[in-house]
Nucleic acid binder design. Structure first.
Lengths: 217, 217
DNA sequence: CCGAATCTCCACCCTTCGATGGAGAATTTT
DNA sequence: AAAATTCTCCATCGAAGGGTGGAGATTCGG
């Protein structure tokens, strides 16, 4: 494998430092060229159209449009587009949704340069590359039922520390109904009480940690 | 301010990509030179001794030795050392401990290049630089009591979703005692039930999210 | 159009949790 | 060494949470 074509890469990542790091790392690599950068989801789509990269490195959490949405939209017009998802924390939901949306690989930001480069090459070659630890977690997720919209509402309230009575008031339903939803979502999450539900929701990224900031002073 | 001496900077950060990004960003800045890099806490101390930087950029979460410990140790032998703390997520505890330990400034990884450069200059000039949002949170923290070791044990168990009975067994105390500790820590955290305690603990970084991975299959 | 599946809702019982009040041991202050 | 503070421990009681079973409403495929 001596003379092969250069892989065109687009870097979509809102953290300046990380984006610069990726660009700097890839600049010294033979056969890979960063042809575009984007700092949010909307920009990512625009840059994709303009640069026509072979592989797109994309952060899941970005302003304006999430990484998952970007992947979905781009794949509607360019189904063969290849994505490598970047994220700091490996929450279950993010992995699942991104891979569902068509991402071929998943990298944590703590990766090594070798990880990065070999993953780009692998994905460009049309193959997928899922780390064992993540593949396992993904497998565990199979068979896990989805939460209904209402159950999700209740879970969100639980994570925010509300009592059943408060939840009932907030959602304008009876307390008994709240309990039913809770019972149902406890089963689906595979936990036995509301505290476990709350930590599971945070850990899996079902309810974002940022939403916890005290909104009632 | 035309001709001023070059600021010598040490970058201590375990994420390769981020470290590379910082170095790349600073490389093009006049008057700032990266004189060393470190990928964990132990290395950070060694590099500090070797490079004698004016300012050290340091991540709080690092292998082997945490950023806070590194700051404490270095300041024992070099009290005038200046630190800028880096972190992805602005948890209360991290901020508090790092500033207690002697850090002069606090930067989120989503910062701009201007933020980075001006903060380095400010800190090198001997001043502190705390973002308003963080200063406010820090102020709120004043008057907040510390958790006792035992209360911390109980809180950790709560976050892991254990019932009072399970906690009693795990810590080898009576269930009634568990309740006392809970009552006490609820007050100190400013919350009203265990679920709020759990989310607060995670959000403030008192109990790390990583510790939630199922450890008993 | 009708059954099947699913979402949403509710009432009852029992367990667990949180509040309160208080006592002995350990640490620090004076 | 005595006093004061703080940590640790415990029992009882009302309130909140979770388990169970079932009913009306909605959506979907045959």
């Amino acid at each position: 494998m001596a003379a092969q074509e250069t892989i065109r890469v687009l870097v979509a990542e809102d953290h300046h430092v990380v984006r610069q790091g990726l660009v700097a790392l890839l600049k010294v690599v033979q056969g890979i060229e960063v042809v575009g950068e984007a700092a949010d989801g909307v920009e990512a789509i625009a840059q994709f159209r303009k640069c026509q990269p072979n592989v797109t490195l994309i952060d899941l959490r970005m302003p304006r449009l999430s990484g998952v949405e970007v992947i979905q939209r781009i794949r509607m017009e360019t189904p063969q587009a290849r994505f490598i998802v970047l994220t700091t924390y490996d929450g279950d939901e993010d992995i699942y949704r991104a891979l569902q949306a068509g991402a071929r690989a998943y990298l944590l930001k703590g990766m090594t340069t070798d990880d990065l480069v070999s993953t780009i090459r692998t994905v460009h070659a049309g193959k997928s590359h899922i780390p064992p630890a993540i593949a396992q977690r993904l497998a565990e997720r199979v068979g896990t039922e989805e939460l209904t919209p209402r159950e999700f509402d209740v879970l969100e309230q639980i994570v925010h520390g509300h009592s059943n009575k408060e939840i009932a008031t907030a959602l304008d339903i009876s307390e008994a109904t709240v309990k039913t939803h809770i019972n149902s979502l406890l089963g689906k999450l595979g936990v036995t009480d509301r505290t476990q539900a709350a930590t599971a929701a945070i850990q899996r990224g079902i309810v974002p940690l940022e939403s916890l900031r005290k909104p009632k002073p």
